[in-house]
Design a protein around this nucleic acid. Sequence first.
DNA 1: TATTGTTATACTCTATAACTATA
DNA 2: TATAGTTATAGAGTATAACAATA
Lengths: 148, 148
Amino acid sequence: MTSETRTERPLSLDTGFLLARANACSLEATHAALEPHGLRVRSYSVLSLAAAEERLSQRDIAEYLRLDPSQVVALVDELQKRQLVARETDPHDRRAKVVVATDAGRQLREAASEAVHHAQAEMLESLRPVERELLRDLLERLAFQDHA
Amino acid sequence: MTSETRTERPLSLDTGFLLARANACSLEATHAALEPHGLRVRSYSVLSLAAAEERLSQRDIAEYLRLDPSQVVALVDELQKRQLVARETDPHDRRAKVVVATDAGRQLREAASEAVHHAQAEMLESLRPVERELLRDLLERLAFQDHA
DNA sequence: TATTGTTATACTCTATAACTATA
DNA sequence: TATAGTTATAGAGTATAACAATA
């Protein structure tokens, strides 16, 4: 056990670093896919949640996307200006505003989603199908941990 | 095959979204771990590469971290001001500047690395050891693809 | 008193173009 | 002419605090 035995731990073995780099690759591809649709990753995410059936409030959306509620305001503002989503006051809690996609919003989201998944399929094509599902499963467990 | 057969594809099944969310969790934990050491994720990454044996130039570092070369300038400036790294002109190409860690830089990197890996072990503790290695392997293949 | 959405502000990160020195 | 580093600048993303309406 000499003093040279210490672990060197290069960045390339660091899961956090790999996560960041893989995410950067993914973001780049996704932004390129969304650009023709006039969306960015964040506005696409908000639009997607607005098009879901759950009738999420801005607070819900903020938590789900790990954004500050004040950031969601600006994103919803922009989508609303483009008539892709609407704000509806929740009758059960009149403080909360449910964000719902309009028909135009749903249509755009559908087309954008197609483009996004095409880009991601390309990014993932070096993995075998089983590995893709495994990766998704592992990431989901990591991304939706309680403690974080 | 009715019109209702279309795939809904919620965000929660989107690998890109999960990658982004998991990365956000990781970044948060890593920043918290680095804060006592006076480093951010990006400066830590640059310092780590400067402490490696490869004698990387700023251009190499930019490519590895997927940063613009101009961003690396600012990061190295700051680390150099704190005497954690030094710029050395590459004798083989006098345009290039190799970034090397000082002794103080190496010491700081070692301590910071300890903190980072502790934080990440915590984040990954819900995965079994085999799954952690599998995740790292999959991410590495994704992060260091040629096409991107 | 606590929470939702909002506004305002400042800070970090990212992207781009132009310049210099070397090749 | 092409590349490494630098500078400057603008835009996107992030974090914080304070406030009004509602619970």
